[in-house]
Nucleic acid binder design. Structure first.
Lengths: 152, 152
DNA sequence: GTTTATGCAAAACCTTTGCATTTTG
DNA sequence: CAAAATGCAAAGGTTTTGCATAAAC
């Protein structure tokens, strides 16, 4: 499910705009990393991005990939899937429930909703496999983080 | 948001049943680990569980905690937050979208839905903070994994 | 008693950091 | 040119593994 060429173009512009806007330098490496991430249809990890970029810039290093990805994340130009930076967390609550996640501090709060437990599954999702559970995640800032001054 | 005592009891029974059913041994350590996880209202990482359990079994080791958690996961008695074991993955798709996640192989597939983009936010969630985005995740087995024989 | 799980220590793995060098604006 | 970013190598943190000992069935 790779993005169409126009979509990639749009993403690249968005990345470049974001960089300029925040005054960070548009280096060769960063642009190539953005290009790789932007054209990926799956959800690559740092290693995968590193491998791809290395085809074009053989001297690029893995830590530059990480630095660039966290930069993109801080600028709100990408999101991450999975655990808040590294650690796996476990959920003992096997009854169906949903989460509010603070994008800043990583706080996760459970909530329950009959309605969300039984969301209608779209046809194109049914085609992907058998759905066992629906899980809704609301992302935003928790009260505590809202109070702190924003950095922008 | 710790579970009520009855709920903890229910969870413990569920854990024990699951263990017996699959023929793994009900060791002292495993039961204590289950107890700690079961009574946790937040979403602890391995280290946090380890620290708690060590108060009761000072000689317990961190790797036993990990082994037990993965066992619980394999038996479907807990879930993890974040799709796959450990690695951070990045998502270049900044337009609002949702995911189908295969709980077995970790495959993640994007899909779009106007409806899910604008889910009504429950009152108790509003009280937690400001919601910026809604994200729906359907979990199940992808076609490929459904075809493979189940291990049970 | 046999099989399975544990604890330890060491390894493997993923991510970050410090610093000299290079590149960007 | 000044400020910021890169690459390298080494460190930091998390998770896994091998193996002898101990515990469960």
């Amino acid at each position: 499910m790779k993005p169409a060429p126009e979509e990639l173009q749009r993403r690249m512009n968005h990345f470049k705009e974001g960089f300029k806007h925040s005054g960070v330098k548009l280096t060769h490496q960063r642009l190539e990393i953005c290009h790789e991430v932007g054209k990926s249809g799956d959800h690559p990890d740092a290693e995968a991005i590193y491998r791809s970029v290395r085809k074009r810039i053989p001297t690029v290093s893995l830590d530059t990939v990480y630095r660039t990805m966290w930069l993109l994340l801080d600028l709100g130009l990408i999101t991450t899937l999975g655990p808040h930076r590294g650690r796996v967390r476990f959920d003992a609550n096997i009854s169906s429930h949903h989460h509010f996640v603070c994008t800043k501090c990583g706080l996760i709060h459970d909530f329950y909703s009959e309605e969300f437990d039984h969301l209608k599954i779209p046809g194109d999702v049914k085609a992907l496999g058998s759905v066992e559970k629906a899980h809704v995640e609301f992302r935003g800032l928790c009260l505590r983080c809202s109070k702190k001054k924003r950095k922008t």
